[in-house]
Computed example of a mutant assay.
Amino acid sequence: MAGAEVMQVEVAYARPDRQLILPVEVPKGATIEQAIRLSGILEHFPEIDLEKQAVGIFGKLKKLDTPLREGDRVEIYRPLIADPKEVRKQRAAAGKRMKKGGGDL
């Protein structure tokens, strides 16, 4: 990107078996989506679907058209396997509760 003003960002994605953080040089004013596409991470993880998966910067959810700043880390989030609220409901229904101190000895 010679001649244009550029900045450095990172693009990250993780699966249980593998994670990848790619440094990428993008033009100033680039969006999250542009950084993802320029990084080449979609070739490493073809299962990524930007239409469905959430993205963010440093753990905060953002939209694909969010402009980036120097040093940002773009994160692509995997869908949840199980809804945490539903898991808690199932545990409660099974009678498994967390014990809170103060029990009789």
Score class of each variant (00 low, 15 high):
17 D>C: 09
92 A>I: 14
78 R>W: 05
38 L>C: 01
44 H>I: 06
75 E>R: 04
40 G>E: 05
38 L>V: 03
98 M>K: 13
20 L>D: 08
49 D>M: 02
31 T>R: 07
83 D>L: 12
29 G>F: 03
72 D>P: 02
1 M>L: 04
73 R>G: 09
23 P>E: 07
40 G>V: 04
83 D>H: 04
17 D>T: 14
43 E>V: 10
82 A>I: 12
31 T>K: 08
36 I>L: 00
88 R>K: 14
38 L>P: 07
50 L>R: 02
34 Q>I: 12
104 D>E: 14
14 A>R: 01
90 Q>T: 11
37 R>F: 01
4 A>G: 12
90 Q>S: 13
27 P>G: 13
61 L>E: 11
36 I>E: 00
22 L>P: 07
59 G>T: 08
44 H>G: 02
10 E>P: 05
9 V>G: 02
54 A>K: 15
17 D>A: 12
56 G>I: 08
27 P>V: 13
48 I>E: 00
91 R>D: 06
9 V>L: 04
39 S>I: 02
8 Q>R: 09
28 K>N: 10
66 T>E: 13
72 D>M: 10
99 K>L: 13
96 K>E: 15
59 G>V: 07
78 R>N: 00
41 I>C: 00
47 E>W: 02
76 I>T: 05
4 A>N: 08
32 I>K: 01
4 A>L: 14
8 Q>N: 11
32 I>E: 05
81 I>R: 11
97 R>W: 14
30 A>V: 02
18 R>D: 11
81 I>A: 11
67 P>L: 05
100 K>H: 10
41 I>D: 01
45 F>T: 00
76 I>D: 04
71 G>V: 08
76 I>N: 06
101 G>Q: 11
3 G>D: 11
35 A>S: 06
78 R>G: 09
35 A>T: 05
11 V>A: 04
17 D>K: 10
19 Q>A: 09
61 L>H: 03
69 R>D: 15
77 Y>C: 12
77 Y>K: 09
40 G>S: 02
2 A>V: 02
54 A>E: 15
20 L>W: 00
15 R>L: 10
87 V>P: 10
4 A>P: 06
15 R>Q: 14
63 K>G: 15
7 M>D: 06
94 A>T: 02
101 G>F: 15
8 Q>A: 05
92 A>R: 15
62 K>M: 14
30 A>H: 00
14 A>K: 01
18 R>N: 14
93 A>F: 07
69 R>M: 12
38 L>W: 02
6 V>T: 15
76 I>K: 07
1 M>Y: 13
59 G>H: 08
45 F>Y: 09
22 L>G: 06
62 K>T: 13
30 A>L: 11
13 Y>E: 05
17 D>L: 12
17 D>N: 15
20 L>R: 09
12 A>F: 08
84 P>L: 08
10 E>M: 09
33 E>R: 06
65 D>P: 03
99 K>N: 13
62 K>G: 10
48 I>R: 01
65 D>F: 10
88 R>F: 10
16 P>K: 02
2 A>W: 09
87 V>W: 03
36 I>Y: 00
11 V>C: 04
60 K>I: 11
100 K>P: 12
101 G>A: 15
44 H>E: 13
45 F>Q: 04
15 R>W: 01
3 G>F: 09
50 L>V: 01
76 I>G: 08
39 S>T: 06
103 G>R: 14
102 G>P: 06
29 G>W: 08
23 P>F: 05
18 R>C: 09
26 V>H: 02
36 I>T: 08
